[in-house]
Design a protein around this nucleic acid. Structure first.
Lengths: 224, 224
DNA sequence: ATATTATATATTATCGATAATATAAAACAA
DNA sequence: TTGTTTTATATTATCGATAATATATAATAT
């Protein structure tokens, strides 16, 4: 596992080649097809995607930006392997920012929006029931992204995305490795929405803390 | 003002060409030589720096990353022109994260570190006394960066840097345009350090809020 | 005159090749 | 053997040129 050569990337149908390559590699990481530590050779990837090296370099820049890849000048790039310390750091900041985001989001959400949020939660459940790790993680990310978006603070959204993306990836991969039963975490998001609808900041903060702590624990990440 | 052609960039003495170009353009923006809205033409810059277009593209990626440039695919890149809304958004998130950073920092700082922080504050003062806008802003950023660094949380540092950099740039430029008297803000940082040394979180939060609010107001940015 | 289409120009996006750098392997000396 | 230098190899960094795309200008029709 982790070798690039076995992966079948999708054909190109995107605005920018580099953006497309970025998405494909990102998905491969989420799906565990590119495991942490795997080195991303520019020319090798260029051949695989049938694009030039420049495209790969730009894609790598984007991967770096969301914390999925780490580059060392003149040496190379590899899929991010977050240390326990880094994981904790990210979770801490994410928790803090997600609280702010939710406080803001509920002020901008009407019934229709809550309906949509519910729909996104159902998407997570659907994937979880079938034990589809990759799909569940993507759906999970989509749900949270929706809340972040609803905060209507662009820099907050972008920041949360950068900080949390590798965490979602990590959870996805760890769960699939441990063949974890996803149904255990299902209730968690329902509670989350309920708290948001109620609108009490204190309660929201609590539930976010619990939600994040729980899901990371389930992914095998110890927090103090 | 804002035309690239009049600027004398420094000769190359850096690890990576793109990193060097990035730094140079960043400094030019801070110094007000590249005002917000100025478009960054890749080939034009390539000629000026006597490097290839690829180098400029990579530098632009980096500028984008710290919020100093905004790129629209197939159209071009320009120096960030933050809207009032975006400014407020950034300040809000920065304030929140800086509080966390300081709480962490003081736990890791010994007397020697506080001495160093004091030294950095003096650097700000020196520039302020001479009304050197650019130097004062850089020194200001250095001081805050030192505190962020002392939090010993890498992602927090990186995030603060991304969020705050364009704000420092903006303050620098606005002050120089208004020919503001920099001595007015001088006391602010002394108070800041005093609060950190005392170590009371509540007081630190207050002073950070005041400090940020004040300095932005002095830069002519209205909050609420 | 106005709107629409065609053409020219500017600019970014992409490519393929070369240069610079780091790593691994081989040759040599103590 | 061990350590040092040399050579070969792999990989990134950089370049210069072409292709694709968007914008501005000119031509044409109504």
């Amino acid at each position: 596992m982790g070798s690039i050569s076995q992966i079948n990337f999708q054909p190109f149908t995107n605005v920018t080649r580099s953006k497309y390559v970025f998405e494909e590699i990102k998905n491969a990481i989420f799906a565990g097809k590119l495991s942490p530590g795997t080195s991303l050779k520019e020319l090798k990837l260029a051949k695989q995607f049938d694009v030039s090296q420049s495209i790969i370099r730009e894609a790598i820049f984007m991967l770096e930006q969301v914390g999925l890849a780490a580059k060392i000048p003149h040496k190379g790039t590899s899929v991010t392997k977050l240390s326990d310390k880094e994981i904790k750091e990210r979770i801490e900041i994410r928790t803090c920012l997600e609280k702010i985001a939710c406080h803001k989001a509920i002020k901008n959400m009407n019934n229709e929006d809550f309906e949509h949020a519910n729909k996104l939660v159902k998407d997570i459940s659907k994937a979880q029931i079938k034990n589809l790790y990759y799909e569940a993680s993507i759906a999970d990310l989509n749900f949270h992204r929706y809340l972040w978006k609803k905060a209507e603070n662009e820099i907050l959204y972008k920041t949360l995305d950068q900080i949390a993306t590798p965490l979602f990836s990590l959870v996805s991969v760890k769960r699939s490795i441990n063949s974890q039963n996803l149904e255990e975490v299902m209730y968690s998001h329902e509670e989350y929405i309920k708290a948001l609808k109620a609108g009490k900041e204190k309660r929201i903060d609590e539930i976010i803390y619990t939600h994040l702590t729980l899901s990371y624990k389930l992914a095998g990440i110890e927090l103090d």
